[in-house]
Amino acid sequence: MHAFTIDLEEWFCTHNFQGIIAYEDWDKLESRIGGQTEQLLELLDKYHVKATFFVLGWVAERHPELLQSITRAGHEIGSHGFSHQLTWQHSRESFKQDLALSTAAIQAVLGSRPTAFRAPAFSVIKQTDWAIDVLKESGYETDSSVYPVSVHPEYGIGDAPLAPYRWANGMAEIPLSCVQYYNKRIPISGGAYFRFMAYPLYRKLVKQLEKEARKLNFYIHPWEIDGDIPKVKGLSYQRRLRHYTGLAQVKPKLERILGDFEFTTLSNAFQS
Rank of each mutant, 00 (worst) to 15 (best):
Y244W: 03
V179R: 00
T87R: 00
V151K: 01
K136D: 12
A104L: 13
Y182K: 07
R62I: 09
F194H: 08
S150Q: 01
N169H: 10
Y199C: 09
D98M: 13
D129L: 08
I220E: 03
G246V: 10
L56G: 04
W223V: 10
M1P: 14
S79H: 13
V149A: 03
G57D: 00
P230T: 03
K215F: 11
I70A: 06
Q89V: 11
K215S: 12
I106Y: 09
N169D: 03
A160V: 02
V49N: 08
A119V: 07
F122G: 00
R118G: 06
Y182I: 15
Q36H: 06
E42A: 13
G170N: 13
S123I: 07
L247Y: 15
Q85M: 15
S102C: 05
R113G: 12
H80M: 05
P120G: 04
T5P: 12
I77P: 06
Q208K: 10
K46S: 15
K233E: 15
F53C: 00
I125A: 00
G78R: 09
E24V: 06
L235Y: 08
A108S: 14
V124I: 12
H221M: 06
Y202M: 11
L40R: 08
L235M: 14
K50Y: 10
E141L: 14
D143Q: 11
R92T: 03
I21G: 09
G190W: 11
E137D: 11
